[in-house]
Nucleic acid binder design. Structure first.
Lengths: 112, 112
DNA sequence: ATATGTATTGACATTCAACTCAATATTGTA
DNA sequence: TACAATATTGAGTTGAATGTCAATACATAT
């Protein structure tokens, strides 16, 4: 099982980007990137992960999933919707399986 | 529209509990309860809200919804489930209505 | 009225995530 | 080899969230 840092390092290298370049574009210190890549620090905030992925041109989903963090837009969407919160409470008490979550994602698409 | 503090104060009084009693049982300083009730501080952490509601014998849902905060168990359930995160990403891009969320909650119950 | 329980207020404390800065080491290249 | 680019490391910073503590004010029953 690869770590967050390992995966990030692989992606960055595969894109021929230096830590400094990445850091500059993302707006953080380059030493921070180094520590993340070597797993000397916990993964960055969700929004920073998203920026990193944008700069590297890859979807953020996998890296986000590894950290269990939610980007601000999603967090806010839930915060503002009591109905969504209720849904999540139900879902939690039921401890849904991955398949069940997928099924719900399908249901989602049917709504529109 | 009532504030978090106002509602908490009403509930506490309706149960004939003093701030000190509540604070002691919840495990916080009584002055903190006072500030919350008078809206001199932002609402407590989600888990503290849950404890408060347990002590007062009311469901935490309404107060939680007012703050948009998620209790640890729910947060963790989502964090650990990439499939759940995927679902939420989809849901966010679709900006579901309250009714649609309710519909999904219904779907949930059908699953079992 | 005063004593006692109850509530409020102001200032300060703690914790943690999420970084930055400066120094040092490593790697690649001519 | 030696120089420049790149990466690593250690220590410190910052801001937000979540409270505590001590002092003061208010309320209420006797």
């Amino acid at each position: 099982m690869k770590t967050f840092g390992q995966i990030l390092k692989e992606i960055r290298r595969s894109k021929n980007v230096t830590q400094r370049e990445l850091a500059t574009e993302v707006g953080v210190d380059f030493s921070y990137i180094s520590k993340i890549e070597n797993d000397h620090m916990s993964p960055p905030a969700a929004d920073t992960i998203v920026k990193i992925c944008e700069v590297l041109g890859v979807p953020p989903d996998d890296l986000l999933a590894m950290t269990g963090k939610m980007p601000t837009p999603i967090r806010e969407a839930i915060s503002e919707k009591p109905a969504a919160q209720q849904f999540l409470r139900e879902a939690q008490t039921m401890t849904l399986t991955d398949d069940e979550w997928s099924a719900l994602t399908q249901q989602l698409k049917k709504l529109r």
